[in-house]
Design a binder for these strands. Sequence first.
DNA 1: CAGGTATTCTGTAAATTTTACGGATTAAAG
DNA 2: CTTTAATCCGTAAAATTTACAGAATACCTG
Lengths: 258, 258
Amino acid sequence: MNSFEEVNYFVQNGHQDYLPHISIDCVIFGYQQQQLKILLLKWKGLNGWGLPGGFIKRREPLSEAAYRILQEKTSLNDLFLQQFHVFGDSPYRVGERSTREFTEKFGLEVQADNWLFERTLSIGYFALMDHVKVNVQTDFFTDDYQWWDASDVPQLLFDQNEVVEKALLTLRLQIYHQPIGYNLLPEKFTLPEIHTLYETILGKELDQRNFSKKLMALGLIQKLNEQRSIGAHRSPFLYQFEKEKYEQALKEGIVHTY
Amino acid sequence: MNSFEEVNYFVQNGHQDYLPHISIDCVIFGYQQQQLKILLLKWKGLNGWGLPGGFIKRREPLSEAAYRILQEKTSLNDLFLQQFHVFGDSPYRVGERSTREFTEKFGLEVQADNWLFERTLSIGYFALMDHVKVNVQTDFFTDDYQWWDASDVPQLLFDQNEVVEKALLTLRLQIYHQPIGYNLLPEKFTLPEIHTLYETILGKELDQRNFSKKLMALGLIQKLNEQRSIGAHRSPFLYQFEKEKYEQALKEGIVHTY
DNA sequence: CAGGTATTCTGTAAATTTTACGGATTAAAG
DNA sequence: CTTTAATCCGTAAAATTTACAGAATACCTG
């Protein structure tokens, strides 16, 4: 949705195609330079950062909507995506953007009763993805994107900081019950890489020997007969996830401590 | 909401006061005769059972809406209540009730475009309560209620069986991270009682000695200097929760296995 | 009132899991 | 060849979890 006509139609008549009062916000986690990152979009004119998001089509299953929105923003579809919370405790969530400001910034005439300015609950989803595979798409309302350090997210629009906080908490809790990494790491990775990933997500040190022992004992990863060259040091072996075991662990859950 | 006038106003004009397209469904767990129970309401005329639920007022924070709805149905307000999932994968969730049938059963004239018959997502909450404290209120649409065995819930309206399933799963997962029992047991309870409660929720046997050892070690419960008389057998001692420890565990979480 | 019955209650040893910890190996650079 | 910085590997101690049985109690019955 990029042309003025498309956008104008969406603003004026979107409520015919989309459910009003409900939006989807996506917290997209990536992993880069040993840092957990979150993808944010910059609102044109507003000079503020926000989460990628969108609305649900009237005849579209909720989960499909989330996938579609994510696909639109990242051009990715093979990913881990999970609903985690509904936010709607501040009844005037959207009130901050005044209609006048909206008109000035975007050149779109909107009335005070425009559907986009009504109260909107937001369903939070979080996604994990290998950031190098992501091809971020901005749209009419946004003109920039950036991967922000998860522990250093700027002030966001509306109550989205709360959304990010909750996503992080959920991710950290989840890591104790489900394997995580398949969508955040390249297909082949080294022990130090996955080790650092877990340390990063959990925000604490994990004994490297015990960690890999555990991972191997669970049968989640498999050692390959290849090594990566990392310059002036011993070459680490490459590993890959055991797809079947991984899927099984996703479904059935695991109990561990790392 | 019980009089015909009130209800008619709600049906015809409710969208002015409530957010359309979004409802709240409550899975209310109780504990009775060593069984985990779920509170269901019987729809008048429809001869079908469903979850207590309601809509969110336009200016009402989401969490307040959930509490209000629960309060309306059970007359209780001191309880454990938690959002757990949004359901909306079948776009025609409400389509099953035809407007004609609705008119016949309830004597309310509704047009096909009535707000209640539009697609509605449902936010699932689950609550835990001591069933003896509950004073169930039926309303215009429902004329009966019953506590059903959690493992033996009848076919419900719409996709509510899925909602119940997910609530149970969430409860079972949660019990590993949070103390549960405060809202399901009377203030003073015996070891065998709480033991059976946990066995019931988890659906498996727990060694009684190890279980109480663990509970005591966590400092969650406190032995009282009173006993309950249970007839022809040894009188069990009464216990109560350590409120502070319990609250703390609720916030910070616990890691255990029981 | 003595014996029977059904329930509560308590401790310890074995098995398992988690934790702690250091030194040998390797790849390239100097 | 030496140095440097990183990977890799195993074992012993500590902590936790599991398994398990018998004594005590309260009322009922004969």
